Amino acid sequence: MKRNFSLALVVLAATLGGCAANTPANDPSLIGSWKGLRAENGKCQFLSWKNNFKPDGRFTITFFRDAQQTQPIQTEHGTWSAANGKNELRTDGVRLPDVYTYKLINADTVHYVNVASDPSGDCQEDYDFTERRIRG
């Protein structure tokens, strides 16, 4: 009887472990390179950026002072997770994530609304912006 109980625990653990591995994958429509900008007359300081969402759940984003993206400010790296209209970015070395709701306008355009950000971030306002896919 004890052996059957131990076997049942092993099977249960393997089953639960398999469920954890089946968490939803990142939204594949967001994978790739994108560019965006904050409105110059918006709630937050103007910025433009290029980001790259990689299939392995990592991202890189470079911020620029100008819309032409010739004056870089800084580059950040981290992890991203996106599903069901919610995208969460965890920048390496930053305590709390930035959280956005998003809606795909088409395959090359996505609209975001910032709903939460780390208190050390440059803008604490809820703001929205549109990103466009970079092809080629």
Rank of each mutant, 00 (worst) to 15 (best):
M1A: 11
V99D: 06
Q68V: 10
L96N: 14
I31A: 14
L47I: 10
W80Q: 02
V115P: 06
A82N: 04
G32S: 10
C19W: 13
Y112A: 00
E131D: 14
T15V: 11
T62L: 07
L96K: 14
Y100P: 08
G93S: 09
Y100D: 10
S117K: 11
N87V: 05
E125S: 09
S48E: 06
V10T: 05
N84E: 10
R65N: 12
F64W: 13
R132G: 08
F64Q: 03
R38I: 00
N84I: 01
R133L: 12
T101K: 04
R58W: 00
V113D: 05
F129C: 00
D56M: 00
G136R: 10
N41R: 11
D92P: 03
V10G: 08
N52H: 14
S81L: 02
P24H: 09
N106D: 15
L12S: 07
T23H: 10
I73L: 13
F63W: 15
S120W: 05
T60F: 01
T101M: 02
L12E: 04
N51E: 15
T75H: 11
P24C: 06
G42Q: 07
L47R: 14
V94N: 10
V113S: 07
D56A: 00
V99N: 02
R132E: 15
L89T: 05
S48Y: 15
M1P: 03
A116D: 01
F64M: 05
I134V: 14
D27L: 08
S29D: 11
I31E: 12
